[in-house]
């Protein structure tokens, strides 16, 4: 049974992300890394090796730089990687990306489970997992904080989902598409051997035609302008006082005057 982990690359979380004079997003010298949320999905895929998974495949739609994320997953312990790349995906929105991922997954055999991080730290819509599930017509379970039971032979899964009001327990059928939240596991650091193996890996690149991508599907959503929030106006008012009690009293009065309490 195969588990597929979908991932992409994002600027390092410590990066100072800015918009240059031409309106392009830049992050200086900061490296592109695996989307931090996806590390939990990769870790979960590796942990499932004890629960009936024979092959873990990491999958990304993107360009040459997406290989950074794929190689990180290989270094952590995934068995193989596939990059789907084509000019047809230029300007893709979640509808286009999710269709491409779903088509690539359909091309693979014996897929029992598809894992995602809950969202990416760039676009951050969190819509791709559910849309991939819908394209595939598979059971889709988002915001999963624990895989309680998974039985690939019986074709069943039981998970705990983290919702706004609490934790929901859901049982369902396999194959399934699952997005995971932080806290489901503790992602491992790649080992030295893993990094060496990943650096030598030849990652196959599949084109839109090879996965049977419907080229009549065009992006619907556009991003006409990306900009930085204007810096906050005014200085921080430091409350100066002899004692903490005095400072607290002044602060409490200020906040009541601001009508935020």
């Amino acid at each position: 049974m195969r588990v597929v982990v979908c991932t992409k690359e994002t600027p390092d979380t410590a990066a100072k992300v800015e918009v240059d004079a031409d309106g392009n997003v830049t992050w200086g010298d900061a490296p592109l890394v695996i989307n931090p949320w996806d590390e939990y999905a990769v870790e979960e895929a590796i942990l499932l090796k004890d629960r009936g998974v024979t092959t873990s495949t990491v999958l990304g739609v993107g360009t040459e730089t997406t290989k950074e994320a794929l190689k990180h997953a290989l270094a952590m312990g995934c068995d193989e990687a596939v990059l789907v790349s084509d000019e047809a995906f230029e300007g893709a929105d979640t509808l286009v990306v999710s269709h491409a991922l779903a088509q690539a997954i359909k091309k693979m055999d014996e897929v029992g489970l598809v894992l995602f991080g809950r969202e990416t730290t760039d676009g951050g819509s969190g819509q791709v997992p559910v849309q991939v599930g819908r394209w595939l017509g598979w059971n889709t379970l988002t915001f999963v904080s624990k895989i309680v039971e998974i039985d690939f032979e019986a074709g069943t899964i039981k998970v705990e989902r983290l919702l706004e009001e609490g934790k929901e327990i859901v049982e369902g059928r396999l194959p399934a598409v699952v997005s995971v939240v932080k806290g489901i596991n503790e992602p491992r650091y790649p080992s030295f051997m893993g990094i060496r193996k990943a650096s030598r890996a030849e990652i196959p690149v599949w084109s839109a035609a090879e996965i049977g991508f419907d080229e009549s599907l065009k992006p619907k959503v556009t991003w006409p302008e990306i900009y930085a929030l204007p810096p906050r106006e005014g200085e921080c008012e430091i409350i100066e006082a002899e004692t903490a009690e005095e400072a607290a009293a002044i602060l409490a009065d200020r906040l009541i005057a601001e009508k935020v309490v």
Partner: peptide
Amino acid sequence: PVYSGKLMSKVTIPE
């Protein structure tokens, strides 16, 4: 908000 709130984007569905 995009890039986890580091930037903002105007977003539209033209057609």
